[in-house]
């Protein structure tokens, strides 16, 4: 379980990890990473395939057991699912659950099978479907949804779980541009309005810069750089981590954009 460190509360930190490692056999997938996550901030994790992004999320969620290191949280939660929610890279939607039933699963950690959901549970499910614009699909079977609708359903489930910290692994990688922007705007809104901490793996570095407060760049199981995206994602770092040539350009009256030279 997580270790409780109450002084984190004063510094508005929702989770701090120290020298976290995860080994598969003798290979270190995650190599002594440390960082602190602040309340209400929107974090992104960027890095090449196999750099340890998903492993970092899953180790923090304790889906994978860390080989060494510590994870600190400011308060004691008897049920981890009341503190952290997770949108995995691929959620299987093989079975005919309705959207409402799938979103209600986010409330499972809060009620017993005998009593059933109370009015607060039901309200949170409605709110989550409202926020993700899935309310009109509530009776539809999840197997009949498009990729974007499925993703919004899963995000709604995580929202209904109502945790202070949300982890999302590549939440937009399977969506079209329109829905990518919709989902990222929604996450931005959740961080700003609900004061939740969001950690998400993103591949599009312009989206990282546009939507997130802070990026952690991972390479070979380590966090090699972190901070404000426009400062961190400089041409030198991108060359060394992603092996690409890039530059930030700034057209008139727009935010800077990263372009790549092929």
């Amino acid at each position: 379980m997580f270790k409780v460190k109450t002084e984190l509360l004063e510094r508005d930190i929702v989770m701090a990890f120290e020298d976290l490692s995860f080994k598969a056999g003798s290979k270190a997938i995650l190599n002594t990473v440390s960082h602190e996550l602040k309340k209400g901030r929107f974090y992104s994790i960027a890095g090449c395939n196999g750099s340890g992004k998903t492993t970092l999320l899953q180790t923090l969620l304790q889906i994978k057991k860390a080989s060494s290191g510590h994870i600190h949280v400011p308060d004691y939660y008897p049920n981890k699912a009341h503190y952290l929610s997770y949108v995995p890279q691929n959620t299987q939607l093989e079975f005919d659950f309705s959207v409402e039933e799938a979103v209600m699963m986010g409330r499972y950690p809060y009620y017993s099978g005998i009593t059933g959901p109370n009015s607060e549970d039901k309200q949170k499910v409605l709110d989550a479907m409202e926020m993700t614009d899935m309310i009109n699909f509530r009776k539809r079977s999840v197997t009949t949804l498009s990729g974007g609708e499925k993703q919004r359903t899963i995000i709604a489930r995580a929202l209904a779980q109502d945790t202070p910290v949300m982890f999302l692994d590549e939440p937009v990688s399977q969506l079209d541009v329109f829905h990518q922007i919709e989902v990222l705007k929604l996450l931005r809104q959740i961080a700003d309005q609900e004061n939740k901490t969001i950690i998400t793996v993103l591949h599009d570095l312009n989206q990282v810069a546009e939507f997130t407060d802070e990026v952690m760049v991972m390479d070979k199981g380590r966090i090699v750089a972190y901070g404000e995206p426009i400062e961190v994602l400089n041409p030198e770092l991108l060359k060394s981590v992603f092996k690409v040539d890039s530059e930030w350009i700034c057209a008139k009256d727009t935010k800077p954009h990263l372009i790549f030279h092929y």
Partner: peptide, 21 residues
């Protein structure tokens, strides 16, 4: 019957089930 809720979560995938406790 007692495990019906858990079965729902397992049907959604191990990671999802795990993150929901």
């Amino acid at each position: 019957f007692k495990y019906a809720k858990d079965l729902n979560l397992l049907a959604m995938g191990n990671e999802t089930a795990h993150s929901l406790g």
